[in-house]
Nucleic acid binder design. Structure first.
Lengths: 194, 194
DNA sequence: CGGATCGTTGATCAACTTCAACGGTCGTGG
DNA sequence: CCACGACCGTTGAAGTTGATCAACGATCCG
């Protein structure tokens, strides 16, 4: 099964490239299978790759000084995941990224990505658009966290990302939404009673 | 006083351009004076510009359905500010951006920025790096909000951005840190007593 | 089938908010 | 350049959202 064409298609969605450019782009990615429970990024190691999910689901999280886990990001099919701070500055990661299911990703490492960006203006444009949208995405989350209650944040997530909500463990979702798993359970119970 | 060279210098810090390229880049920006209290971005209007602060201070904020204000971002000299979601998608803004002091900015509008990006690979690279760093910045804030208490968030801000902390109204800082102005006042009192 | 992981529920608790009142100060108009 | 109003920060008391602690039940996968 050829998954490289999926990254070509993704590229084409964002920039206007020829078939040849799209195919060349795809050759810079490596397909990798990741088993459920396996980590692809760990604190103190530099995040080598940006990962495009072909199949499966991932969770990015940090562990605070009390030993508690905080979910930072999720990724399912057609999403990207990495420790961006670690990747772009090539500094040790603070995040874990682990597979929630048996998964397949297309990986590109920092040096290869650098080559692509330098090689062709359109590839550079692609990564610029990715970064801009990533930035806007994070900002919307910050605004949501500042302006909504726990229950509203859950509603918003359900509405916006229903496919993710049903697929990840509830404790991880609760943590992503900045609440405890117990509190999310109570919110769900309250809704079910209506 | 020539402020255009400041944007040239900024460009040079991120990408390796010739003097000519840096000067040309700068000509795409327009210098504007903004009076204290004046808004440069308002909800329901499309954010026309990205703004680079030469002098002064700005605050970006949203108003929630209860009519309460939430600070999203600050900008002082050598920082950028806009409603990024509105700017990159050219959709109506959800944010206000207003001047906290009499200020001077260099503005570039969406179409001009598009031209620059298309014109020269290096300019595209510049905006890519800006977006990547913006994204990483937002992500660090999200992580900080997930893992720290109100007091820790204040300490972190003070350490990281002392120049901003002393320059913006306390209620705006409290709101940025996701706490009430009263609670920040109590935190400060507690620290002063030590 | 069995242990570990995950979600639920109840009781208590803490961080932070809300409401209200007051004092300071800043900058704007007369 | 002064006075006054609006805005800003502070403080106290009461209230609320959501956390913590603890125990139990369900489920999933190996």
């Amino acid at each position: 099964m050829d998954n490289q064409h999926k990254i070509s298609a993704y590229l084409k969605r964002l920039v206007d490239v020829t078939d040849e450019e799209a195919e060349l782009f795809a050759t810079y990615f490596t397909e990798t299978k990741i088993k459920r429970g396996q980590y692809i990024i760990q604190p103190s190691f530099v995040a080598k790759h940006r990962n495009y999910v072909i199949e499966g689901a991932f969770k990015g999280f940090v562990i605070d000084k009390k030993g508690e886990e905080h979910t930072i990001s999720f990724a399912i099919e057609d999403w990207w995941i990495s420790d961006v701070n670690s990747f772009i500055y090539q500094q040790p990661a603070t995040m874990f990224v682990g597979a929630l299911e048996n998964s397949i990703v297309l990986q590109i490492d920092f040096e290869k990505e650098k080559e692509l960006k330098a090689m062709n203006h359109k590839y550079e444009t692609f990564f610029r658009i990715m970064a801009e949208r990533g930035s806007a995405f994070h900002l919307r989350r910050i605004i949501s966290n500042l302006t909504h209650t726990a229950e509203e944040r859950y509603d918003y997530f359900l509405e916006k990302y229903p496919l993710i909500a049903v697929r990840v463990p509830q404790y991880a979702l609760a943590s992503y939404l900045n609440m405890t798993t117990q509190f999310l359970s109570r919110i769900r119970k309250k809704k079910a009673e209506k």
